[in-house]
Amino acid sequence: MTRSLNRVMTWGVRPPWLQVARRIVRNPPALFGLVVVIGVVLVALLAPVLAPYPYDKQNLDAAAQPPSAAHWLGTDALGRDMFSRIIWGARSAVFVIVMVTLVGLALGVPLGAAAGYWGGWVDTLVMRLADVLFAFPGLLFVFFVAATIKPGIEAWARAMGWRDLAQSGYLSYGVVILSLGIVGWAGLARLVRAQVLTVKEREFVIAAHALGVPTGRVITRHILPNALAPIIIALSMGMGDIALSEGYLSFMGIGLQPPAPSWGNILAESAGRYWRAFPQMVWLVWIPGAILAAVVFAFNFLGDGLNEALNPEI
């Protein structure tokens, strides 16, 4: 009954997500961002189909080759197909972005919401913890954490009897995700707290309390959905930062380790000794760099577009 009444009352009014979508589509940079993000996700999902070779298949007979019909972007010093590595790099990037965002959400949203809702000592505890994390020097701290937890994670894998895994370089995904996640949740927690503070005194929240809705349900069903817009914007911009940080970490050799494909470590390999030895293969620097830049642009443009679309009054 109420449902059909609802439908009648909103008849002719576009649903809010459609309005947001329209504003995004009419904003060229945001549209560019959306297209690139969807494209990268598709490439990441379809990597096994799109890549002509496995990303870690070495072919020493065809090492360090210029582009050819067989290898569109040439091969690296171990004869790995660069085109395939760059395609698989999208999967690494998307995987890291999604996982770090999930870690950030899992820590930041409950802690921030609890701090904002209950206030008092919960608030003090969470916000002071965030303060401590903020006082550390940004990316350098992430590097420090990554360099510190890496041997620990490897030792743990060995202790579990996963010797091959410990040596393979794939554990580096865990290192990157953990260090970025641990450091990154504080910003989200602050944002969620501020949002909850502004929403929790609104009439509909008081009404929900008065109707006897349990506190947990009030937070998840009434407060958080109304605090969503800034969180979505921050997440979108944060995803660009995560991609960039993963690139930096991998570039510095603390992030994803070869053979795991990452635009950062491809860039590092190409810009380092390898590039000096084969200066004509400069595209191995430009292409992963340009793709990384485009992905970061895309997330930032999208975040900016979402900001305009979700806050039309500002």
Partner: peptide
């Protein structure tokens, strides 16, 4: 639009790319 695009573009540019470039 131009100012916003340029600003976002400039912060998105990976510094690691600047070195080789």
């Amino acid at each position: 639009l131009a100012v916003r695009a340029v600003v976002i573009a400039s912060i998105s540019l990976p510094i690691i790319l600047l070195n080789p470039v």
